[in-house]
């Protein structure tokens, strides 16, 4: 079985500065793989290469054995969901946010909210009025609306308090247990110890 993601000899520069040089990585196709590394080591860049928000200057990125540069990037991104560092909710209600990902009826939308421990009464609330932790759970629900087969989490709890962090960790770990493999980037080694089934590190972790 091919790995979930495979980066081979990847080079990427930004503004003339190398971010990744001859970089190789294999991410197993099960559980939670945590990628740790100090700030600026290229962790977020790697996630963006996996769903083609970035493309390498040279080298290959594969998703389950298939070069991600082949095929429709929109289809790839719907299969490989991503939760960002800052909860980024859109203008409008919680339901509007979920519908930005997929045409959903109210029942399906309420079910999705249930998956992230938010009840249906949230559907009509203005997304920007939610707390940081609720917004990040909404972002996770919105990502799950496209039924992704893998999940990327980019420092997904760095803007959250301790309680909200634990809630999100539990939700994502549970998702991985139910068969959606996760690649989670963090600089928090304690968090890595709590959630990782597999660990990879870049440079010297701080």
């Amino acid at each position: 079985m091919p790995p979930l993601f495979e980066l081979l000899e990847v080079h990427l520069s930004r503004s003339g500065e190398p971010v990744l040089e001859a970089f190789d990585l294999e991410v197993p196709d099960d559980g939670v793989t945590v990628l740790t590394g100090p700030s600026g080591s290229g962790k977020s860049t790697i996630l963006r290469l996996c769903n083609r928000l970035l493309v390498p200057d040279s080298g290959t990125v594969r998703f389950r054995g298939v070069d991600v540069s082949q095929g429709d990037p929109c289809v790839l991104r719907r299969s490989v969901g991503m939760v960002f560092q800052q909860p980024t909710v859109f203008e409008g209600s919680v339901l509007d946010n979920l519908r930005a990902a997929e045409e959903l009826d109210s029942t399906a939308a309420a079910d999705l909210l249930g998956d992230v421990a938010l009840d249906a009464s949230f559907l009509d609330r203005r997304a920007r009025d939610l707390s940081g932790g609720e917004q990040q759970r909404l972002c996770l629900a919105r990502t799950l609306a496209t039924s992704p087969v893998a999940l990327l989490v980019d420092e997904g709890t760095s803007a959250l308090d301790r309680k909200a962090t634990r809630v999100l960790e539990e939700l994502v770990v549970d998702l991985a247990r139910r068969g959606t493999p996760v690649l989670w980037v963090t600089h928090d080694l304690d968090q890595a110890a709590r959630i990782a089934d597999h660990r990879r590190s870049l440079g010297n972790p701080s």
Binding site: L53, C74, R77, R78, G81, M82, T88, F90, A100
Partner: peptide
């Protein structure tokens, strides 16, 4: 930019 990339990551064109 964050909002645009969040939308792209959902498979939006």
């Amino acid at each position: 930019r964050d909002e645009v990339e969040a939308r792209l990551a959902l498979g939006n064109t």
